[in-house]
Amino acid sequence: MADAGPARVPTLEAIDEKFGPPEQTDQPSGYFRRMVDADWLRRNGVYATLALLIGVNVVITDNFVSSNTLRLQLVQVAPVLIVALGMALVIGTEGIDLSVGATIALAAAIIPLYIGYGAPGAIGLALFAGVVTGSFAGLLVAGVGVQPIVATLGIMVAGRGVANLLGGEIKSIRDPAIVSLGTDSVAGVPYVVVIAGAVSLVVWGVVRHSTYGRQLVAIGGNKRAAELAGLPVKRVLATTYVVSGVLAALAGVLLAARSRASDPTKIGLLMELAAITAVVVGGTPLSGGQVRIVGTIAGALLIQIIGATLIAHDIPDSTAQMVQAVIVVAAVYVQLGVRRANR
């Protein structure tokens, strides 16, 4: 019966009738089990390390067990975390966004400049700056096909230049609404932390359940296969850079609100590295195809608490840098190990 027309999806009943009940096999073999161990380390290493570090601090650091410590660490980690969430999406597409620091500077520079339009207006404009830098990166990467590292490096340099030009000297921010955003709390939780939490939840939901999130992960995993499956590869890539830009701008607003000043030459400096570190330490592979939001949150917290520990025990700067280097190298090493096992 050769009816012309599409291959209809058959019904389960029809299948059962024809083939009998399903059987299930193809369990992971011993080879895969070994790989799973390396994989376990990559997936859960960050949580184990974080738990260990907190445990050590409870014992050795004065005043560590207190609500003030918790609040302080969460407040300080919030901007890094917000940037890292955007970065996780970009890295999920097998990209990288080096322009986040410049976007932070741009957004922070805009706040005191346009505070005349009121706090919402100034914040809106600052976030729009993130849309602009993100669109630009997206256009270069998705449209023109420039390598992400090159495209965003250009924006990193140019963006900070524009921020310097626009912002000029360091400006203090005295607008009560902005200051309150950086300082006050709701039900004992600082606004900054509430915002970071909300952003985390939204990004997590998007990655897991939105069409865009699923497409993003597929594109990062195998761009060519995604193209051949008809996914809107360019649109997804461009959107991702815009999201990263807006989140960086949001972080810029929060940083400016917290320090009540905007210093375009210094603010957000090296933030791209902190964010990338959080993402990678959190178990998202630089090779794309996976986005680990909870891991990223843990990664950001881990870096934050390491920094706090080093300061609390007055470890000199050079040693502190080495400790951070060791952690990044270890995280990358674990990833490489997993990849080798997967070969």
């Binding site: 650091t61 005043n63 302080l72 300080q76 917290r258």
Partner: peptide, 26 residues
């Protein structure tokens, strides 16, 4: 002198580092 920590001549780093110092060393 009980602590020496870098804040890179930057205001926001001066703030975050001081916050940590005060929290851990009253």
């Amino acid at each position: 002198i009980v602590a020496e920590q870098t804040a890179n001549f930057a205001r926001d780093e001066g703030q975050t580092v001081t916050e940590q110092l005060l929290q851990s060393n009253s």
